[in-house]
Design a protein around this nucleic acid. Structure first.
Length: 496
RNA sequence: GCCGCUAUAGUGUAAGUGGUUAACACGCCGCCCUCUCAAGGCGGAGACUACGGGUUCGAGUCCCGUUAGCGGUACCA
């Protein structure tokens, strides 16, 4: 019987979707789609105080935008608390777990890391299974619990031997049982802990493949122990390499800001497919040179065997406004903008024009063909959708700024003070305002004035758009139309 | 501290079972396109495959060690 594929993405409700989390979600999603499986979203909200409606929404928004919507869920781990507790009690009854009456250690103000190390060093002497309550008769323990004495529930891990499991990415994993302490399953206040909860939920949801970040790799041994104690079959484990910030440090919103949040990419003009494509290549490759991969191709080509083991660095310069995120992601987004079907692009552009206050309803009515043509003209040199509303302003509105550098480069020649108005009047008298006619008029004027055509062409470009770069100048003029072009040629005199 | 994972140009990745001058993309630099460029075309620089030992006729690819980075180690997730 072929086992059906069921995978899950299980983020904490942090308020936003982290690019690392998005990559994990994506790999799960690709794997599910490829195997006609089920992709489940489960919010790990057992850290009760930190979770709220709003904290979950950011994650949902990010996933929806990326097109990674779950087939089942979102489920909330907190709603399964009773099942987690029940599982722990079953283990107590089976003698596989025990009540620990040791008073809870007081937390002090040192860092967590320091405390962990100190504790671990102390345990080095005593051994990890030296808990005095480990072998207390169950009946006695039950009596003490019944009398109201607080107790945590710990798993009895084997004293000697080796834990083994196979990871689809990292290969065979081994760990001495003596290295694994009797982990706490349920806190003395009755609250189930992470390791227990994930395992119980994954069993309950019949998860076939656990695909998650490799920060969970060593703890997987603990979870394997729980699966075994519960008598459940192990899922397939596949851990993914982490994604770092430049300098190989942890990529965090606190330290690195908005670049880590998926919705930032949506708001700053990314095409969802482009970000998906970029993310897919962080830690995975199809094995050949192809990098521009549609969703369909990703689903077809994805495989856990091709997942890389080394962490990937997400490369960006925090100071650079133009390269605010990984340059390759920006490049890839540009590739999507210039090659996607125009009919898909125009609605995206209109979204950003609305945001920039440049939208006119005519663009989706009688001027739709004009709008599509203009977008098509511009898209070759834009990298994000935001560019249409910012760099593209002169193409969609009459009030725009002249870039000082462009003025300096193209409008500083004194002769232009006469030539530009003259060009304006020649264009005015044109009966047909076409690429050919505008160009012929300009070139003959240049010849008469004994200046290079380039001087006039570049000057006209800056007069028409305020910029020094852009599409072919005659294309711009024709698309802008005779009236606006002439008007702008005249207006330019004021900034020269 | 202990345990584990990883290690190919600045970054992302290639180089099935060891076999010519380590490949591709992004980025960077230059040239061309004489209508610009943040577009396009062409080219270039950039890696003694972390370091040190082996095994082998031959290793980025196998073995051992070292170092570094990261992860885990909690009544956090």
């Amino acid at each position: 019987m072929a086992q059906s594929v069921r995978v899950r993405f299980a983020p904490s409700p942090t308020g936003y979707l982290h690019v690392g989390g998005a990559r994990t979600a994506l790999f799960n999603w690709l794997f599910a789609r490829q195997h006609d499986g089920v992709f489940i979203l489960r919010i790990e909200d057992t850290d009760l105080q930190r979770s709220s409606e709003a904290m979950v929404q950011g994650i949902l928004d990010g996933m929806q935008w990326l097109g990674l919507e779950p087939d089942e869920g979102p489920f909330f781990q907190s709603s399964f608390l009773e099942q987690h507790r029940a599982a722990a009690h079953r283990l107590i009854e089976a003698g596989k777990a025990y009540y620990d009456f040791t008073p809870k250690r007081e937390t002090d103000d040192r860092t967590v890391k320091e405390k962990i190390v100190e504790r671990a060093i102390a345990q080095e002497q005593s051994g990890k299974h030296a808990n005095p309550y480990r072998d207390l008769p169950v009946s006695e323990a039950l009596e003490r619990v019944a009398s109201g004495e607080p107790a945590a529930i710990r798993l009895k891990t084997p004293v000697s031997g080796v834990s083994r499991f196979n990871d689809e990415v990292y290969g065979p994993q081994e760990r001495e049982y003596s290295e694994i302490e009797d982990l706490v399953l349920v806190r003395s206040d009755g609250h189930p802990l992470y390791n227990l909860s994930v395992v119980v939920d994954d069993i309950q949801m019949r998860i076939s493949h656990v695909i998650r970040g490799m920060d969970h790799l060593t703890n997987t041994h603990k979870q394997v122990l729980i699966y075994q104690a519960l008598g459940a079959e192990l899922p397939v484990f596949a851990h993914l390499p982490l994604i770092f910030a430049p300098g190989r440090e942890k990529l965090s919103k606190r330290k690195h800001g908005e670049v880590v949040s998926v919705t930032t990419y949506r708001d700053r003009g990314f095409v969802a497919d482009a970000l998906v494509n970029f993310l897919a290549l962080l830690g995975w490759s199809p094995g050949d040179d192809q990098e521009l991969l549609s969703r369909g191709l990703l689903i077809e080509k994805f495989s856990l065997e091709q997942v890389n083991k080394a962490a990937a660095v997400f490369n960006f310069k925090e100071s650079d406004a133009r390269d605010w995120t990984d340059p390759k992601a920006l490049w890839m987004n540009g590739e999507y903008i210039k090659s996607m079907p125009l009919g898909q692009l125009t609605p995206m552009v209109s979204e950003f024009l609305k945001r920039a206050g440049l939208w006119r309803p005519e663009y989706e009515a009688e001027e739709a063909p004009w709008f599509a043509h203009m977008v098509d003209l511009l898209r070759a040199r834009y990298r994000t959708l935001i560019d249409f509303g910012e760099l593209g302003r002169p193409y969609f509105a009459d009030d725009f700024e002249y870039e000082p550098a462009a003025i300096k480069k193209n409008l500083k020649d004194d002769k232009l003070k006469e030539l530009l108005p003259e060009l304006a009047s020649r264009w005015t008298s044109l009966t047909e305002f076409s690429h050919e006619s505008t160009e012929a008029a300009l070139r003959s004027l240049a010849e008469e004035a004994a200046v290079k055509p380039g001087l006039l062409i570049n000057a006209a470009r800056t007069a028409l758009t305020g910029q020094s770069v852009g599409p072919g100048m005659f294309e711009i003029a024709v698309t802008l139309g005779k009236e606006r072009s002439v008007e702008r040629l005249k207006r330019a005199i004021h900034v020269m």
